[in-house]
Design a protein around this nucleic acid. Structure first.
Lengths: 124, 124
DNA sequence: TTTATACGTAAGGCTGCGCTTACCTGTCAA
DNA sequence: TTGACAGGTAAGCGCAGCCTTACGTATAAA
């Protein structure tokens, strides 16, 4: 019975992030992208995932926590394992944003802009 | 004649980044995405860009330097201005990566796993 | 010239990221 | 029970990211 223990004065460490659950941030880290790529082949427990990386299991757990907060993965308990599962819906945000630029490189609009720029320089 | 000045011992500050010119990293910052969005409407000088943000001009310059290193923008001198121009080609990397998952959230079946299996050795 | 403008860059501060080790809980096995 | 295993989480360390101010440089204007 821990009644005689003094109550700790908690020095609140701020886990605040500039990007709270932002998809672009989540995907910026190559390890997290690799995790998503692995999970794209099927759900997998943490240890199985961690074995493929040159870092500790807690590190992978923390990456998965970020992916969880971004809702890019889901986890379900099976026995004493937690199977992580891809949940790619938030990637749609990235897709939609980048898709706006797609026309710039497919329709070669940038090349057109450069062409106009050169002509303008000749005239001036 | 600065002969009496002692030669400075240069404390080399390391500007090294884990992500050297990585597109995903460049785009992770909301300010840099906003810069790209602005430049999508046409080339623009630095001051004109900086006016739209609640931060100093050098901060914008540094963001632009990162976009330059990633080749997401180009700059050309005109008088004493530097006009920055969108160069969206590198975004294709993001597009291609996310596009693999698109089939994942639209359909339910995909040959995604097969594709990733082939590419996995490159990263490790 | 001299002065003003547009911009880059160095220097430094603060903070959060990404990692580690240590510790804890929860589940299965013996 | 006890032990082993899976995994989440706290604490802390080193450093990169993002900002600031101060300064340097190139061009244009006076």
């Amino acid at each position: 019975m821990l009644t005689s223990r003094t109550k700790d004065v908690r020095v609140v460490k701020r886990p605040m992030s500039r990007f709270g659950g932002d998809v672009f941030y989540a995907v910026a880290d190559p390890t997290r992208r690799a995790l998503l790529d692995l999970l794209a082949q099927g759900e997998e427990p943490v240890n199985s995932l961690a074995e493929r990386f040159a870092m500790s299991r807690p590190a992978i757990s923390q990456h998965l926590a970020i992916l969880l907060k971004t809702r890019l993965v889901r986890a379900r308990r099976v026995g004493r394992e937690r199977l992580y599962q891809l949940q790619p819906k938030p990637l749609e945000q990235i897709y939609d944003w980048v898709a706006l630029y797609e026309r710039f490189w497919t329709e070669k609009l940038s090349a057109l802009g450069e062409h106009l720029r050169k002509n303008r320089e000749k005239r001036s």
